[in-house]
């Protein structure tokens, strides 16, 4: 069986990527191949990257508060491009109240501040479709 490939992406105007980098390293240390997008990605760029890199998982990180727009945009575009098998998860500063709407839009799970990285690894290993 092949390796799990994960795209860790930073959508929109948000320069805070320490969290994304820590998660990226943790996933690498769990034996996954992690593509890090860099900052300021549009939803289109994230989806194109996900297609070209043939990833199993897209991990979005956002601390700016624009997740209701940007996370939803990525999930909508993913559906449009037939990426139903790609697991989309999110992290960052996401209020509890927003999570149900995000899940409905196609974000499978949301991991807030203080989440142990092991939990994210375990979630991916459990739910990834290979």
């Amino acid at each position: 069986m092949g390796k799990i490939r994960v795209l860790v992406a930073k959508p929109g105007l948000d320069g805070h990527d320490r969290g994304a980098k820590i998660v990226a390293r943790a996933l690498r240390d769990a034996g996954m191949e992690v593509i890090y997008s860099g900052l300021h990605q549009t939803a289109d760029q994230i989806i194109t990257t996900a297609i070209q890199e043939d990833v199993h998982v897209i991990g979005l990180s956002l601390l700016s508060g624009a997740h209701m727009t940007l996370f939803v945009d990525v999930a909508t575009l993913a559906k449009k491009h037939d990426l139903q098998n790609v697991l989309i998860i999110g992290g960052g500063i996401i209020p509890e109240d927003d999570i149900p709407a995000l899940k409905k839009a196609g974000i499978s799970a949301v991991f807030g501040p203080g989440t142990p990285v092991e939990k994210i690894v375990e979630y991916i290993e459990t739910y990834v479709k290979r």
């Binding site: 990226a24 690498r28 593509i35 890090y36 997008s37």
Partner: peptide, 11 residues
């Protein structure tokens, strides 16, 4: 670990 961090796309 067999893992890799692929960061060339950043640029």
């Amino acid at each position: 670990t067999g893992g890799a961090l692929l960061g060339d796309r950043i640029r």
